[in-house]
Every structure is written in C-alpha cells, then in structure tokens.
Design a protein around this nucleic acid. Sequence first.
DNA 1: CTGATTGCAAAGGGTTTGCATTGGA
DNA 2: TCCAATGCAAACCCTTTGCAATCAG
Lengths: 118, 118
Amino acid sequence: MTKQRAAVLEVVSRKGCHYSAEEIFEEAKKILPEISRATVYNNLHALERDRVIRRITAEDSSDRYDSSYVPHGHLYCTVCGDIKDFDIPNFHSSLSEIADTEIDSYELKVRYICKKCK
Amino acid sequence: MTKQRAAVLEVVSRKGCHYSAEEIFEEAKKILPEISRATVYNNLHALERDRVIRRITAEDSSDRYDSSYVPHGHLYCTVCGDIKDFDIPNFHSSLSEIADTEIDSYELKVRYICKKCK
DNA sequence: CTGATTGCAAAGGGTTTGCATTGGA
DNA sequence: TCCAATGCAAACCCTTTGCAATCAG
C-alpha cells in the first residue's frame, strides 16, 4: 500500500461520487501533487483486480469508478449526467434464476431524468 | 436511405450478432467495397438516433450494436466474450417502481461463463 | 435543385505501454 | 535486498471532425 494507492482509494471512496479516471487524477493531485496519470490508472486497475472498487461504463464519456465492488444499479440522469446508486433486493439471485445459469456479476444502468432536471 | 445506410442496417440486423463498429465496417465492405469508416459511424449514429438500433457498451473493448432498439438484458461470457440476449418480463415497469421514478431505458449486462466455456 | 450524405485524412480523447528510477516490506 | 510501484512520454485504439465532392428526393 503506497501513498499513491492510498490517495486514489481515498478519492474513489468519497460517498456518492462516481469519478472518471481524469477526475480521480485531479483530486489525487491535491493530495499528492507529484502523482502521475499512469499511476492513477495502475492503481485503479489494481484496486479493481483486488475487488475493492468497481469500474462502471458510461456512454459518451469515459469510465467511472464506484467505491463499492458489490454490484448494484445506477441511475443516470440523461440531462445533467448525475449518477445515483440504487439497490434491487435479491437481484443477483433473481438474475441467476431467470438466466438459468450461475452469474458472476452484473451492471445495470438506468436512464432517467432526475428531480432537479425535471 | 442511401445504399450505405442500407448496408450498415443489413449487417447490424443479422440475428444474434452484436458487432463492433469495426466489424460492421468490415462486413459492410463486403457489400460495398468503397464504403468508408466515417460513413459507417455516421449511419450507426443516425440509426440509433432514429431508434432503429441500440448501442451497447462492452468493457475492455469497443461499443457494440444491437439490432433491436428495445432494451433487454445481455449475457457476457467472461471467457470467450460471446454476447447473448435475454429477456426479463416486465423489467421496465419493475425498475420504474423500484426506482420510484419514470425511466427512459436501461442497459443490463450480466457476466457469466457460457455453457461451451464451462 | 438543395440539403443530406459520402469518403478521406487528420485530429482528438482516453487509456496503455516501455523503461529507467524509486521505494516499501 | 528486491520486486513491485512510480513517473514520464510516446504510442495506441477507437471515434470524431473538417471539408470538398456526390447523391437522393
């Protein structure tokens, strides 16, 4: 656990945030001004490999990172781009049943218009 | 409806396929050898805008295109990369209920290991 | 006729890679 | 000590853009 990895983890772990790699880089620089982009990418990959964080794919923009490795749904506001977490109880086992196979994990993106934008 | 758009649509519409833009370009060239990459992208965008096809995001690889605009689930084999469609009855309305808001559409990716690979 | 579409090539962004240097266990 | 992690820059892939030529309605 280097100080760079700790900084990246600290940033990704901020509650309710779904930062892009570039945003994580910018935030991490505030903690460690000498950190490099490659190191941020290295650590994001390492933390994902170690099942600490989860990468989520946006559309029309770069990937984002979620502080929880446990799959859950994401609400994407199609107007302001904000991302909110939301849970579906027992979704993993429901999926397994419907698909009639063991499943590893899932990613659920729901497009909507958030309250503010409506 | 230009012959280029027809070719792109023909390729994307092949049953069970989830081609990348590059694959669509390669297949479309077999129909119209003079077609350019930019035209393929143009038409993929146009067809998506007109709600004919749907773009789906992979991970660790480029976007794919689905011949149906209607949202449904996708099973991604984590070993061979194959993508299969699958339906969850009433999922749209269930989501709307659980999220307690109107929703526009969704994208559901399920990671698993397909029969062949198991 | 006229706006939309095409093809090309160059630019763009986000991410990865190679490699010499540094640092934590 | 020593392998993993770092920082930098260049390379890379995929996609978009600018623009003149062409085409479909």
